[in-house]
Design a protein around this nucleic acid. Sequence first.
DNA 1: GTCTATACCACGATAGAC
DNA 2: GTCTATCGTGGTATAGAC
Lengths: 210, 210
Amino acid sequence: MTSAPSGTRFSAIPRTAAQTRVLDAALRLIAEHGVSGTSLQMIADAMGVTKAAVYRQFKTKEEIVVAITEREMARLEDAVEAAEAEGHPLRAREVLLDRMIDQAIERRGVVSVLQFDPVIIRLQAEHEPFQRFIERLYAALLGTEAGVEARFHAAMLSSAISVAVMHPLIADFDAATLRAQLTKMTRRMLDLPETAQDSAGSAKSRSAAP
Amino acid sequence: MTSAPSGTRFSAIPRTAAQTRVLDAALRLIAEHGVSGTSLQMIADAMGVTKAAVYRQFKTKEEIVVAITEREMARLEDAVEAAEAEGHPLRAREVLLDRMIDQAIERRGVVSVLQFDPVIIRLQAEHEPFQRFIERLYAALLGTEAGVEARFHAAMLSSAISVAVMHPLIADFDAATLRAQLTKMTRRMLDLPETAQDSAGSAKSRSAAP
DNA sequence: GTCTATACCACGATAGAC
DNA sequence: GTCTATCGTGGTATAGAC
């Protein structure tokens, strides 16, 4: 505990190649079946190895889930830090939202699973590093104010972004269309003026789907 | 099949008192642990009976999950029908959104679980009555148009509403505050003018949280 | 008709020996 | 890395008590 770094940096956690392979396979399966619906056997089969081989890389199933969560949070961590580096809280929020949209699109389907799986929710509540990071994320999302409306906006935004990207109604949207619409909508939700770039993006996107 | 009613009416499915007790207990547990994370044993324990007693009411676990989904959809069914009864599609959408907000608040936490659990998602894809109903719901939500923007709006709204109500940042909101904020936000997302009622609601709500 | 007692088999995570 | 074992628990099933 004496060597514990003051700031939790998920990005700094080292993984061997074998561990990374386990995490990749596990994430794919968990995204499809949920944590409880994914067994070590399934992970092993997907990797073409035995259960014992998986068990060698991570002592328990929970460790795998923790590692997956850490890896996913590491990506968001970069976004939060980029936002915190901005001087102005309003500008910070914009940067963060932009990055969150990027990531939600880039990892379409994955983000929401991690956000809604009951097992992962419990894990996040139990592991302090996760808790601390989430609070940091919320802080950046809230900016300076913390009233009813601000909190509602932050809640609505952070949930809507990660969920909308995997909605069946827009499953056929390409990344560019999605990003344009999401950017436009988040700005509207916050009552911010649309940027010229947004309008161009959303106009272009209109031709992207029949 | 000859006796199958033309319109699927989930509301018309009869349940005995014993079955209802099983569904109540199961829903609570599933909302907390997910479908895969909930065993017949847990359901039985929660009811203070044995596994066999549960098994007597529903032959399989899947039947329980189907029944739960039917029961929850029956509630939405009323909302969809009320919307369809409106002449104007725009007005229909407003009515539906209003009811969806009501239900998301009333059954806070339950709606989103059913919407995101991998097992239930698979079930919905496999059972045609569920599929048909969902399409009906989307149709009412889309109104007349079905372009990129309209679909995006429908997706964003239907996901955001059910998810936001259980977001930790606003877990302390009371029902009235939630409803006011949700109504206001959905109107803003659709670029509709705010109603006097909304403003009053959101003003009142401001005093509901410190 | 509803619940209990009990059993069955497959599979879950875990573990140590190879 | 694999093989094999352990041990609990999953869902399913039947027979019989109230």
